[in-house]
Structures are given as C-alpha cells and as structure tokens.
Nucleic acid binder design. Structure first.
Lengths: 138, 138
DNA sequence: TGGAATCATGCAACAGAAGTGCATTTATTG
DNA sequence: CAATAAATGCACTTCTGTTGCATGATTCCA
C-alpha cells in the first residue's frame, strides 16, 4: 500500500491523524462514500472536520466528488494522475439499484457527444444505473 | 397552443386552476425549473401543493425530473410520446455554467455504453455542462 | 338533490445535507 | 519559548425534500 502520509505531503496536505484515517478509509473502499458514511465510521470525528477534510482533499486533487443522482454527494479517491477537470479524463459512474453502491468505472470514458450549434461542453457527468457485478451474481 | 385542460384530462389528472398554471408555466419555459422557481412565480401557492402537483404530473408522465448536478431537482415537460423510463428515450441534458439554466436536448440520446461483465444498465443520466447557445452568442 | 366519498389544498412540522462563524486546540517556525 | 498559522470542534443557519393532518372543493350515486 501507498505511504499515505508521504503521498499527502506530496499533494500539499498536512497528514494529520484524522486525514490519514479518512484517506485510508477511502483507499480501502471500493465504492464511493458519503460524508455520513465517513461520519458513522469514525464516530468520534466531528462532521465539520470531515466535511472540510474532504473539501481539502478535493482542492488538492486527492478525491473527486460524485453526483450519482441520489441527491447525496459521494467521494472517491482519484486515480493516479487523475485530472478530474479535464474532459478527456471524465470517467463514468455506475450506481447499483440493488446494493445502492456507486463505483467509478475509470476505464470507461464518456463518449464524445455532438452538440447543436452554439453549445460548448466543458464538463460532463454520466451515471449509469442498474445492477452491479456483485449483485448480478456474475 | 395545446388545450391544457383537455390534455390533462387525457392524462388522468384533474385540471384544477393551480395545475393549469403550473402546466402552462412549464410549457412556456424553455429551461427546466425547480420547485422554488415555481414557488416564486406563484407567490400565493403553497410549496406543498406545488410539490404534490409536480409529483402527480410525474406519475402521469406529464413532466420528468432532471438531476443536473446542482443538487436541486428540476422539472420539464415531457415531449409528446415521451417514455422517460425506457432507455431508448433517454435524452441528455445541458447545464449552462453561465446562465445556470438547464435544457433538454431531446434529439440527443445517450449513446450505448459497453459495460464490464456482470454490470446491467437499466437507466442512465448524462448531463453536459458548459456554455449554451444563448450565452455563447451564436 | 343531498349527502358520502374522494380528491386537492394549505399549514405545520421534521429530517437530512450543506455550509458558515467563532473559539479552541495543535502544530510550525523563527 | 513565543508568535503565527493551521486544524479541529461546537453551535447554528439555510435550503430542499417530505409527511401528517385538518380543511375546502368536487364528484358520484342513491
């Protein structure tokens, strides 16, 4: 596993105990997590601290937000070299209607869309919903 | 313009004064509207009534919800013969980062995505963000 | 036509997520 | 060690979405 504290210093984030916990939790999670998920995992931690921790991580491109249509923001670690803001790097997300988990399909980029005249795309969000591999039994 | 009250009766919705107002407001809007938008337009109306009006419209396939990533649900009239639940009918939405409006691009369907083994897609949501035709000056 | 039943509306209240301000604690640096 | 900066914790607010319940309006049928 990555040396979490060194990694965070490289990203310009002070590796406090709380931040390391959150980072490791996300690193071990296959699915994206909500603020409440994290809050429930670390009962001692204050919600505001976690909120700001995630915001810091986001600013430093350690995590990216995911809007999967549930109305609750989720967070997942960025892949190595992930440049969330660049269109070419926009992967899609899959939300399972059964287990309610959302995962990044980092290998699957959003296809190019031919827009009407005058429309200029800068960003895109594609969420597929259905049954994930674990729940479909394959 | 369509006879709104007859149209609503065909859809199995009693055309009350309030419902006609909401329907006409949405019909005249090019962009999708939030509950608050509608609430501010009809100051006299109660939020709950509008909320339930929209829910009724949704059940009867008169409007469809749009999640454009702003975190606030928006509503737009369905096109004639729109079958929001069918994958083939899933059009994409465009959110303008300048004027903050979201429009349906009903002619633009979501392209087919080849998923990894075990994943079964039932639904999809694609939102492109950028500058709309009005704001790009074309 | 006169209720009875059904549907629509309005008011109040609540839950959950997101976000802000401020005080306090912890860490860094000269 | 003192001064500064950063991180944390607490309280509180706002906004959206939602439900329960009482009241008002409409429909329907004997």
């Amino acid at each position: 596993m990555i040396q979490a504290d060194k990694f965070m210093e490289e990203k310009g984030v002070r590796p406090t105990a709380m931040r390391l916990l959150v980072f490791r939790f996300l690193a071990e999670s296959k699915a994206a997590k909500t603020l409440s998920d994290i809050e429930n995992t670390f009962a001692k931690a204050d919600r505001t601290t976690l909120y700001r921790t995630l915001k810091t991580f986001e600013d430093k491109a350690i995590v990216h937000q995911i809007d999967d249509g549930t109305g609750i923001t989720k967070y997942a670690l960025c892949e190595e070299g992930c440049n969330c803001e660049l269109e070419q790097d926009l992967h899609l997300h899959f939300h399972c209607n059964n287990c309610k988990e959302t995962v990044c399909l980092t290998e699957h980029k959003i296809p190019y869309i031919n827009l009407p005249d005058g429309y200029v795309a800068e960003d895109a969000n594609l969420v597929l919903k259905g049954i994930c591999d674990k729940c479909s039994g394959q």
